[in-house]
Design a protein around this nucleic acid. Structure first.
Length: 1205
RNA sequence: GGGCGGGUAGCUCAGUUGGCUAGAGCAUUCGCUUUACACGCGAGAGGUCCCGGGUUCGAGUCCCGGCCCGCCUACCA
């Protein structure tokens, strides 16, 4: 073993060994057969938008620690890996990339036939690239995922789950379509969920606009004849203050707004009914300047009354009159609903003023047309200009407020009226299921409390528990979830919209067919009625539009027929979180029945010859063989060729009826008649094979790309759901955790069709662990645009994967977010340095885009530079990152390496004795041996406790202290003189080392595996009560047993005994150091019998640790100095040729000063009358004893001082 | 506005039912090529535990108030 641990020399081969051993592949069969308890974790699927940064490294390291520990503890473990398609994020990135490459981007593709498909292809390629990169990063970090089961949220298995889930929710009335105000991103032109909107403080302005008052016009449709209302008229009506205004002039109301341009869509002015002016205004109207539109004055409690002196900023700025724009403001929309106001949408989807989207009337008039085609910003200026010109702009005041921005395009959100799909998450079947799931002790409100003896209820627990509050509060204020997105990249909504045929044969045929299909659950139909509109009674007289949700989009018969009736598929896709919410179900094969019988049937010819079996639900024969040249057509062609023509016959395949998986279908008529076909393929090989017709292919990977899954996939749900824990960051609690709980419980529940009788199913996971966020060195969130994110691979390169992991684990305390100051590594000379920073326009502090190496002076680019679209070159390469934060962990790994190297040197050179006694009682062991075993027992307990309560930092700290402070500093040093001649000591050494490697393996898998490999041949005497079970698969430590050491080895007596040795050694070392005794000089100890006994019984430990030439009862003859130990006066002699009295005086003075302080404090404590009375007697006794000891020590030192003169 | 978290050594952070002298890593001082490790070994120095009250025999820890910092959430009248 080399004297330094170089991670790069080991990590690759260790990964290969794990891979070869199949160490991480989960076998649901063992769980179902009750051979092992399950322990499962679902990876929070990273977005394929970008490579992973340190935050992901933290997230995944913690999961790996948990899963590796449980694997060693004997659980059947599954860590399900995968990635997320991240709809809007990926679409934006891909679009940007297309633009940068000069290829047609979305705006171009929208205009051409097949543009959508073309874009999806580009996105798919992008996804493939990043999926590979992300997977590589995870593997480099040592993540022990079940890589054979890796999923993607848009792969066929997941897509099937999405369609099924949508269908069931739709059928059960939990999905509806409605015209609502949504958060509209005018740049990407899609609706966003509330949580995709970021609030940003902006310096805005309040504009005060005057709206003239008029009498209701005679002819409502022609407002030109509206009569003005004068101030004197208003005064006569009792309007307070009107008499002070010029009586003949036209009276007006002043509204305050931050968005003057929306006045174009105003359909009312609202006033609080308690406002003293309200009564006088009853029956009057307001006429919008330029447009001439006459709108009502409505009374609504929502309106805040003006209060210029008040503390409420709203009241302070308010005029008491609120302009109401139902189509462009969510609150106004609600007011509009209450007062049945018209909704006038004045904007196009790109937020420009438009006469094409609901605003026709005045848009073409003289006053209105000047606005058409203007952007929001231009329109605002124009409105202000026109109002100012007419003397209708009363005032402008600066106002600071937050405005929603798209988390992707960063454009200001436009509240926009549009048709969207919603999930009724506020329904008790969904929200209730999530709230009832919460552990009762973490609840603070009384709604939806868990019911006794109800599966899943009360089982969901948050760690740390404060996060339960966020979860609960979110559900209390929940609104229905907008799930449609006007994007291309995502799961397309499986709904066809159209009008049913009216009258005649076709109508009858429709009724007949559709009713049959509904009975078969192949389609569900709803009239497109917005519940809100329905309430208002607006649904009557509307065209009879219907939404048909088709359960299986490959159900060609149904699809073709609906399209023949003129139904068209909804172009929108689903919110990414819809598929994320199904992650616990879709990755485990839901919906689908276990397909275990397939194995027996396929394997009948040569039992045991199949390495793996993959299955796919293919629907009908027609959909399976597909059209000429289609993807599925290629599939069947190759399957046939590989089975029937290839000499190696690498596979067998059969078709089954999904309803009966015991007998394969052989007759063509049976196959063609079956609507629920399952294709099962048995592979005789694994990895890449050479075929006659298709060159070298990895059959398993190829089949997976066609939607085939491992035959055991459908057993996963039974075996591993609920999973054990979900590890994530707090920003996801609401977005994701809640929705997984709702969906898992709903879809695995029973009686879903009927709200009253629905029974919640089980949870997707029982524990939710929320970990810290990693920020950059100045506390800013890591982001791609700031270039302050760190690629974990940079750290793997500079410090090694284990150091990366150990550091992250040690940082994970219960409270703190983590700041990670980052250095650059010069790509020219390899030296690290602290980068120069700059302030971005937005005020962020980042590394300057270009840097010069302080050592070699050459130039380089930073990630921020690249994000500002600078291109790296050979003169200016991209610099990698590193951070001194990881040094501690790297040093720790090196320490472990060297301690092991030392131990192996000893263990390898001396053979185990012939006498391999099976049981070695403790009495035969030396003090340090018994002590290290006692410490080992304590350390194991601490690690287990920490792991069980997700206190990761404590786990790492326990290992650090045990390995470095106990094992290296004391145990190894103590046994050095004796270990070569003691087989027992060597046995303890070996077992302790091995147990340490096992304990540390979950945190530092590479180095422990590497050292374990060297341990293979070493033998030693067995020690009673130490249980180290061998590796289960491929001889790798990752599958070896967690160390079990009998608690009998823990001994407080032994600990105390060894502590005496340690404090004597420390006391003597202190004197040696202060008197500057050369390290090699041997000194002599003069001590009373009790201390001599301690030394004699533990020899040669103390002598060797402090460099004693000898010890004796005798008084020293030459010069000597005193040492205090356990109240005894010891003396050290032969420190030097002459003791320096000045040094000694300084030392004693310091000791005396310290002791005086301590004695004072103790006296004060005991002098307090309450202390003796109220404090526990044992504690008081202890304090008295301590005071005595200190006093005597103090006296002794003073005496020494006097003797010195 | 509401909620949550944090303020402990020069820096980054531990400190789980209140209880012996408040800990670690880095940095720093002194000494050391001690035959596993200088990514090391030995010995030090360094703290009004943000401020002010309170409860208690006893408060870094519990309660109240205040001041800073961060995050989440609400609000575009």
């Amino acid at each position: 073993m080399p004297p330094k641990y170089q991670p790069a020399d080991h990590e690759a081969q260790i990964r290969a060994r794990w891979d070869k051993a199949g160490a991480f592949h989960a076998d649901p069969g063992r769980v179902l057969a009750a051979e092992a308890a399950p322990y499962a974790i679902l990876i929070p699927p990273p977005n394929v938008t970008a490579a992973l940064h340190l935050g992901h490294a933290l997230n995944n390291t913690l999961q790996d620690v948990l899963i590796r520990a449980r694997r060693m503890m004997g659980y059947e473990t599954l860590w399900m890996p995968g990635t997320d398609h991240a709809g809007i994020a990926t679409q934006t990135v891909v679009d940007k990339r297309l633009k940068a490459e000069g290829k047609p981007s979305i705006s171009d593709l929208r205009r051409i036939e097949g543009g959508r498909e073309q874009f999806i292809e580009a996105a798919q390629a992008f996804k493939d690239e990043y999926e590979v990169r992300i997977t590589h990063q995870l593997k480099m970090m040592g993540c022990s995922c079940d890589w054979d089961r890796q999923r993607f949220t848009m792969d066929e298995l997941c897509a099937r789950a999405v369609r099924e889930a949508f269908f069931r929710l739709f059928r059960d009335g939990l999905i509806y379509r409605g015209k609502r105000i949504v958060n509209w991103d005018p740049v990407t032109q899609t609706a966003l969920a509330d949580d995709e909107v970021e609030m940003e403080e902006v310096e805005g302005k309040f504009y005060y606009l005057r709206y003239p008052l008029v009498h209701p016009p005679q002819n409502a449709s022609d407002p030109k004849d509206a009569q003005e209302v004068s101030w004197s008229e208003l005064a006569a009506r009792g309007y307070p203050g009107a008499e002070l205004l010029p009586g003949e002039e036209n009276a007006y109301l002043t509204v305050a707004t931050t968005r003057p341009e929306t006045y174009l869509g105003d359909t009312a002015v609202a006033v609080n009914p308690r406002d003293p002016r309200a009564a006088a205004l009853r029956g009057l109207r307001v006429q919008l300047p330029l447009l001439g539109r006459v709108i009502a004055i409505v009374e609504d409690d929502y309106v805040v009354m003006a209060d210029p002196e008040g503390d409420d900023p709203k009241a302070k700025y308010a005029t008491g009159f609120l302009k109401v724009t139902p189509a462009h403001d969510p609150n106004d929309y609600e007011i509009g609903r209450r007062h049945e106001l018209e909704q006038i949408n004045v904007m196009a989807p790109d937020a420009s003023i438009s006469d094409q989207h609901g605003w026709e009337r005045e848009a073409r008039s003289e006053g209105g047309k000047i606005f058409v085609g203007k952007s929001r910003e231009e329109a605002r200026e124009l409105v202000l200009k026109e109002f100012r010109a007419r003397g209708l702009l009363e005032a402008v005041k600066p106002y600071r407020h937050s405005v929603g921005h798209s988390y992707r395009s960063h454009a200001a959100i436009e509240p926009y009226l549009s048709d969207q799909w919603y999930v009724a998450v506020t329904d008790g079947r969904l929200r209730g299921a999530a709230l009832r799931a919460m552990a009762p002790e973490q609840r603070t409100t009384e709604s939806f409390l868990p019911r006794p003896h109800h599966e899943g209820d009360g089982e969901l627990k948050f760690y740390p528990d404060r996060y339960a509050k966020a979860f609960e509060a979110w559900h209390e204020g929940l609104r229905d979830w907008c799930i449609s997105r006007q994007l291309w990249w995502g799961h397309r909504i499986p709904v066809w919209i159209g009008a049913r045929p009216v009258g005649g044969d076709e109508s009858a045929r429709f009724d007949r067919l559709v009713s049959a299909w509904r009975n078969e659950d192949r389609v569900a139909l709803h009239r497109l009625v917005d519940p809100a509109a329905h309430q208002r009674g607006e649904s009557d007289g509307q065209p009879q539009l219907e939404a048909a949700c088709i359960r299986d989009e490959t159900d060609a018969e149904v699809v073709a027929q609906f399209e023949a009736w003129g139904y068209a598929r909804d172009p929108d896709v689903l919110d990414t979180w819809f598929s994320s919410a199904l992650w616990p179900l879709s990755t485990m094969g839901w919906p689908g029945a276990p397909s275990a019988p397939v194995a027996a049937t396929l394997d009948v010819q040569e039992p045991g010859s199949l390495r793996s079996i993959l299955v796919k639900h293919v629907g009908t024969w027609k959909s399976f063989i597909g059209d000429e040249g289609a993807r599925s057509g290629e599939l069947i062609e190759r399957l046939l060729a590989l089975r029937d023509k290839d000499p190696a016959e690498p596979l067998v395949y059969e078709l089954f009826d999904g309803a009966d998986m015991h007998m394969p279908l052989r007759a063509l008529a049976d196959i063609q008649g079956c609507g629920n076909l399952v294709c099962a393929v048995g592979l005789r090989t694994s990895g890449v094979v050479r075929t006659r017709n298709y060159g070298e292919i990895d059959l398993a990977a190829w089949l997976r790309s066609h939607g085939f899954v491992d035959a055991s996939t459908h057993q996963l749900l039974e075996a591993f759901n609920p999973t054990s824990v979900l590890c994530t960051a707090r920003e996801i609690i609401t977005l994701w955790v809640s929705r997984m709980v709702m969906f898992n419980r709903y879809f695995l529940g029973e009686g879903s069709g009927d709200a009253a009788r629905h029974i919640d199913g089980r949870l997707p996971f029982r524990d939710v662990f929320i970990h810290a966020m990693i920020q950059d060195g100045t506390g800013q969130k890591m982001s791609k645009s700031l270039g302050n994110g760190v690629d974990p691979l940079d750290i793997v390169e500079s410090h090694g994967a284990d150091a990366l992991r150990f550091c992250l684990v040690k940082l994970t305390t219960q409270t703190q977010d983590v700041r990670m100051p980052v250095d650059l590594i010069c790509p020219h000379c390899g030296r690290p340095f602290e980068p120069k920073t700059i302030k971005t326009p937005a005020g962020h502090v980042v590394a300057a885009p270009e840097q010069a190496c302080p050592a070699c002076g050459k130039a380089m680019l930073t990630a921020y530079g690249v994000s500002q679209s600078q291109k790296p070159s050979s003169e200016r390469p991209l610099a990698k990152n590193t951070s001194g934060k990881f040094d501690e962990a790297r040093n720790f790994c090196n320490k472990l390496w060297n301690a092991s190297r030392f131990a192996l040197g000893i263990l390898g050179s001396a053979p185990a004795t012939g006498a391999m006694s099976a049981r070695t009682p403790g009495e035969m062991l030396s003090l340090p041996d018994r002590w290290i075993l006692s410490r080992l027992v304590q350390t194991i307990a601490e690690c287990e406790r920490a792991l069980g309560s997700y206190q990761f930092s404590n786990y790492a700290t326990a290992m650090y202290d045990f390995l470095w402070r106990d094992f290296c500093d004391w145990y190894l040093e103590a046994i050095k003189p004796t270990v070569a001649d003691s087989p027992l000591q060597r046995a303890v050494l070996l077992h302790t080392l091995e147990a340490t490697l096992r304990l540390l393996h979950p945190i530092a898998p590479f180095i422990t595996e590497s050292i374990w490999d060297h341990l293979g041949t070493v033998e030693a005497v067995a020690i009673e009560g130490i249980d180290l079970t061998p590796a289960k698969r491929g001889g790798v430590l990752a599958t070896a047993g967690w160390p079990r050491v009998a608690t009998e080895w823990r001994s407080e007596q032994v600990d105390a005994h060894f502590e005496r040795v340690r404090s004597l050694v420390t006391a003597i070392r202190e004197v040696r150091s202060q008197h500057k005794v050369p390290p090699k000089r041997r000194i002599r100890l003069h001590a009373p019998e009790e201390v001599i006994q301690l030394i004699v019984t533990t020899e040669p430990i103390i002598s060797s640790l402090v460099g004693l030439a000898g010890f004796t009862h005798d008084e020293p003859r030459g010069p000597s100095v005193p040492v205090r130990f356990e109240g005894f006066d010891l003396r050290l002699s032969e420190l030097a040729d002459a003791v320096d009295p000045a040094t000694e005086q300084t030392r004693l003075a310091k000791a005396i000063a310290d002791l005086v302080k301590e004695v004072d404090a103790l006296e004060k404590r005991l002098g307090n009358p309450g202390y003796a009375e109220r404090a526990p007697a044992q504690l008081v006794q202890q304090t008295r004893g301590l005071l005595e000891a200190k006093r005597s020590e103090l006296a002794a030192f003073r005496e020494q001082m006097e003797r010195l003169g």
